[in-house]
Amino acid sequence: MDKAALQLELEGDVLAVCRKMIDHSAVDTTTDYIRRYESYFLSLQEKHGPESFNHGARQYDEQFFKILESCSSMHKETLGRKFAEFYKRNGMKIPTKDSINPGYYVCHDMNHIIAGYEPTGIGEICLGAFKLGMNDSDANWMASLTNFLIHEAGIFKPGHNVQYEPLGADGDPFDGLEGKRGVMTLDGAPEMLADAFNRGMNCSKDFSTIDHLELATMPLAQIREEYNVSPPLKGVADSSLCW
């Protein structure tokens, strides 16, 4: 473990969670992970409006939710319209004032759209790698680890009454693998992961935690050009509609 951690340059909470996965039960690992991950919520939320916080979460004003509500009526080529379509085709409800951590999910899903990955198992893992390529931060490491804990290690399952199940191409949250093997065993998955790292590193700057709603009325193609976001590699593992 120590040699692998050195080679991967793992340290801090990421290394602590990985060590716990080796020696403890899924329940213990999940509990420890969630406790650690909560401290990164603020840095992974939508940066919109004044810096107002409450119990570790940003507070969002009426304008924030009005923009979200208007996304479906924006021009079809805009980031906002693509955001609304992303939610609709994946059976999700756009966050409202009653949602838990709405800014976290808006930020996360705006990144899905700009990077070009659907919320499938491999899509989530690739998005985590893409963000790490743009910004090798502790928060992005923890977010990326989340995807591997869910879709590769199978430590815990996503989704409950205020979230959603990230569905695979056949409607199964684990891409039809039924917990018998990880997402990375799917045809084309390793190549897609490597491509995601490279795409992120080739971006001109980090767009992962900007105020995405400020860009909602801009054409998605223009945003991708500004940040030098190249088309993703597609494989059997992915049925993405995001690009």
Rank of each mutant, 00 (worst) to 15 (best):
F156S: 04
E77Y: 12
S144I: 03
R36H: 09
L149T: 00
M201C: 10
L42V: 10
I223V: 15
E38P: 00
A169W: 06
N54C: 14
A84V: 01
C107R: 13
E165Y: 14
I114S: 08
A216D: 04
L177V: 00
L42W: 03
V162N: 11
L44P: 07
S70F: 04
K20H: 03
A139R: 02
N147Y: 09
I155P: 02
R224D: 05
L6N: 11
C71R: 06
I122G: 00
F130P: 02
Q45M: 15
L215W: 14
G168C: 02
L149F: 03
R36I: 04
N54L: 15
E124M: 08
A4E: 08
S70R: 13
V17K: 01
A196N: 05
H75T: 12
G49V: 12
V106D: 00
R35M: 08
E51N: 15
G168P: 01
N198D: 13
A129K: 02
G116H: 07
S52F: 13
Y164D: 07
L6S: 13
Y104Q: 12
C203F: 02
G176R: 07
G116S: 09
V229F: 00
Y87E: 04
I114K: 09
I223K: 11
V236G: 12
I67F: 00
H24G: 01
A4K: 08
V236A: 15
L10G: 02
E46S: 14
I122C: 10
K76G: 10
L8R: 10
H151K: 03
D172N: 11
I113E: 04
A115Q: 08
M184V: 11
G56H: 09
K66D: 15
R19D: 15
S240Q: 07
L167W: 03
K205G: 08
T30Y: 03
K76S: 13
G49Q: 12
F197N: 07
E38N: 11
N135G: 01
G103D: 08
V236I: 15
I223M: 12
